[in-house]
């Protein structure tokens, strides 16, 4: 009864977005760390990719991810819809004093979120459902994902778009990761450590992802 009311309330819905956001943050961190093997070499990366593809837990994990993504996006968009309805009409100027204005990252979470989703769809098309190359690894035929990644990361436009998308992800995470603490009631978003944690997390994830295409484009 209370749980139902809680989830229907504005506080409860934010809670859902925060929890799923935290789960997705964990995913991007793991995805970035795993992909760092791209910098090690073809064999290491393909071995890792093969282990991931053939892992029996990959399907339930993917289902979990899709559920988290859908919940995160649908509840956030619903909240945004309600928030827009709560606004007043009229010109309503933006503050002329920067002390009274909110930061970019916090004001444009929906925009950066939607852009990240567009990136995600294109990302899945170009890699997960991209060209299927094969290679041999310890006498076994495995997918040569490294070759596909290397090919894509040598296209200038692809790299530019990829870096841009990661900067957008950075903005989304910098606000989102620290806001999680506030929404879950753990600590204030104004807390210095929480703020630093948000920026650091975003910088590590986005920085890691950006280093991969740049490495291929310039050094490999």
């Amino acid at each position: 009864m209370y749980l139902k009311n809680f989830l229907a309330s504005s506080v409860g819905q934010k809670f859902l977005v925060a929890l799923t956001g935290l789960g997705l943050s964990g995913f991007v961190l793991m995805h970035m760390s795993g992909n760092m093997l791209l910098l090690v070499g073809a064999e290491a990366y393909n071995k890792y990719a093969h282990a991931m593809i053939t892992n029996p837990l990959i399907i339930p994990a993917e289902i979990g991810l899709v559920v988290m993504f859908l919940l995160h996006m649908s509840v956030a968009l619903k909240i945004n819809w309600d928030n827009r309805a709560a606004r007043g009409t009229g010109p309503g100027r933006r503050p002329s004093n920067s002390d009274k204005d909110a930061r970019f990252a916090s004001r444009y979470m929906v925009l950066t979120g939607v852009l990240t989703f567009v990136f995600l769809v294109l990302h899945l098309i170009s890699f997960k459902y991209g060209t299927y190359y094969e290679t041999e690894l310890h006498g076994e035929k495995v997918r040569d994902l490294y070759r596909l990644v290397a090919e894509e990361f040598h296209k200038p436009l692809f790299v530019a778009w990829y870096v841009f998308a990661m900067l957008i992800l950075f903005a989304h995470l910098a606000h989102g990761f620290s806001a999680v603490f506030q929404t879950l009631g753990l600590a204030s978003v104004r807390n210095c450590t929480v703020k630093k944690l948000g920026w650091t997390f975003a910088a590590v994830v986005a920085g890691g992802f950006i280093s991969q295409p740049l490495y291929f484009f310039f050094f490999n």
């Binding site: 009274k100 506030q182 009631g185």
Partner: peptide, 26 residues
């Protein structure tokens, strides 16, 4: 509407009520 943790309210508040209260509300 609901909170997006932008902190605009805290900046505008004539009594400087802190955002940490919203964490407490949650």
């Amino acid at each position: 509407g609901s909170c997006s943790n932008t902190g605009a309210c805290e900046a505008a508040c004539p009594k400087e009520i802190k955002l940490e209260n919203i964490a407490m509300l949650n």
